[in-house]
Amino acid sequence: MKYLINIDHRIIYILVIISITLPLIAPLNLPVDASEEVTKIYQKIDSLMPGDTVLLLISYAAQNEVEMKSQSDSVISHLFSKEGIKIVSAALVESGNIYLNQYMSSYASEYQKEAGRDFVNLGFVYGGEVAVANLANDIHQAAPADSDGNLLADLEMMKNIKDGSDFDLVINFGATQLWSIVRYITDVYNVDLVSGIEAVFAIRFLPYYVSGQLDGYLNGLVGAAGYESLIGIRGPASKHMDPLSSSSMLIIVLIIVGNISYLVEKRQKFSDRSAR
């Protein structure tokens, strides 16, 4: 018990690393289920018809790559598999541009899609909240040219896309500008919105989901794993659920052990004081 009261922090670090490493080496492959808010995203994308226009926004930073890339990989692969849809894409944070370019390049090469006809990549759009409001008001003013420097006015696809009302669905990844997307696009133009959100921020957007302003969301890596189960793959998110679960269990055990040691210490101090 005396040892449990004061475990060295380096032992805790080693325990955490072991709890993550072991399931990576010997995976348990526990099943993963999709929750209701994840299923709604799947249904929204599945119900897209040829000719529908989607606004794809990446607003997550590189530090959240593990959970957010798992989300965007599975959702975007599902989106890209839909035939005949038009995609306008933009990154709202600088590091989001890294991932956006990867996705849109693969859309062009693997799915044989043509920039300007099937999709338009606006690249990084500077300005944060004001950039979203600017995009919603007038896309041609917010981004006069795409990421390759082609004027939007010259692109066949953009002739009928002027503002937020011209989209059938907005798909966003990242919590950074989600609230401004709700304020300036969803609520103004009554457009459907689905989003992947970092787990640390997901709770803040629950009111939007319950009120219907957000039609579905992915809650961190758990949401990504759920989406992978819906599209029928056991991808990186599903494989990461085992180490995530084991490390979370370790945290629970540490909380319980820490509190037991605290209560024991408190009782000892009380009995020492009353003995005196």
Binding site: I20, V222, H240, P243, L244, S247, S248, I251
Partner: peptide, 26 residues
Amino acid sequence: SNVILSRMTLLLGRIKFLLGDWLNII
């Protein structure tokens, strides 16, 4: 609980990179 899940996800990503992509253990 969401913060714990998020932070642990970040850590497991780095450990997976070190053990997988770098050292090829997993």
